[in-house]
């Protein structure tokens, strides 16, 4: 839920990175944290297990330009990917203003992509947030690995419904299209906020390698 504080003249939005376990959600946030200006971000908070798997969530506050006199702040979260953490995912998705679904492009991860995708939509529905009205971006990550699944195939699996989402091919480990993904979602969220309609909700837009 967007929160507008007219006293501090600040608008806050919550963006959540969802997706397959080990798909690169935390890597997206780590890259953003390492490459965004220190004056534009807070600390990266990671609640992880001893072997660096996300246990609860990662959190990174970032802020961008002042729009109409209001400082615009985005709170970036990741959810844990593993199946057993569904209750945690649902919790982190409360009050979300936009989601990035990070799909793993390795061919043997397609079933997990689908499971995570369906789980995300179910969790949003259970929270009373209809996915159809929520700004969302698909990121096909790990395009730098050998023999990634064809984009058309991944689109068929994840993006062939009535709502076609913008797609970004990415390699979060090298930073390729990590900022493009963030900017794409942030623009959609702001568009919805300022105009009352979701951008890119009907036409698919693909940013390729």
């Amino acid at each position: 839920m967007a929160v507008i504080n007219h006293d501090t003249r600040e608008v806050s939005f919550k963006l959540v990175y969802c997706g397959t376990p080990m798909g690169g959600k935390t890597t997206n946030l780590s890259y953003i944290h390492s490459r965004i200006g220190a004056d534009q971000r807070g600390d990266l908070v990671a609640l992880a297990t001893a072997n660096d798997r996300t246990l609860f969530f990662d959190f990174l506050p970032v802020h961008t330009m002042v729009i109409n006199g209001y400082k615009t702040k985005f709170m970036l979260y990741t959810v844990p990917g593993q199946v057993c953490y569904n209750a945690t995912r649902q919790m982190v998705l409360r009050g979300v203003d936009g989601v990035v679904f990070v799909a793993d492009s390795q061919l043997d991860r397609m079933e997990e992509n689908l499971t995570a995708w369906r789980g995300m939509i179910r969790n949003l529905a259970d929270n009373g947030t209809p996915f159809e009205q929520l700004p969302a971006i698909l990121q096909f990550n790990k395009r730098d690995l050998p023999d990634p699944a064809p984009v058309a195939y991944m689109e068929y699996l994840l993006n062939s419904g009535p709502r076609r989402l913008p797609v970004f091919e990415a390699a979060a480990a090298t930073g390729y299209n990590v900022f493009a993904t963030l900017n794409g979602l942030a623009q959609d969220v702001l568009h919805l906020f300022h105009h009352g309609t979701a951008r890119g909700a009907t036409a698919s837009q693909s940013v390729s390698a």
Binding site: I32, R35, I36, G37, Q40, V62, T64, M65, T72, G175, V178, F179, L182, N183, A186, Q187, L190, H191, H194, R199
Partner: peptide
């Protein structure tokens, strides 16, 4: 919003 880059990579 179309043209703006909200976050820039350093």
């Amino acid at each position: 919003f179309e043209a703006a880059t909200l976050f820039r990579q350093e």
